[in-house]
């Protein structure tokens, strides 16, 4: 099983690849809406991408108010 740090690192890499942003520009405590410049529909895209990658199901209501990569990683880690 992934450690929390591995999960976070994979999320940052996936987000960078999916939204075509240099990986080094993304930091764990960044607000991903601002850093990635994404809207709500693109956030759902990211959620689907992460669910497919980690093979987990993450109810979107658990993401209400979540805007940084570290907290997002914690939510996923709890379902691995």
């Amino acid at each position: 099983m992934n450690t929390a740090e591995q999960t976070l690192d994979e999320i940052l890499s996936l987000a960078a690849m999916h939204f075509k942003v240099p990986r080094e520009k993304l930091r764990p405590d960044d607000d991903f809406f601002k850093t990635l410049g994404i809207d709500s529909l693109q956030t759902l895209d990211l959620l689907t991408k992460l669910e497919n990658h980690f093979r987990v199901e993450l109810p979107d209501y658990e993401l209400q108010g979540v805007s940084d990569f570290r907290t997002l990683a914690g939510k996923i880690q709890a379902r691995l």
């Binding site: 956030t43 979107d60 209400q64």
Partner: peptide, 8 residues
């Protein structure tokens, strides 16, 4: 103006 209006 919520960033997540599509999230129920």
């Amino acid at each position: 103006t919520d960033a997540q209006p599509y999230l129920p």
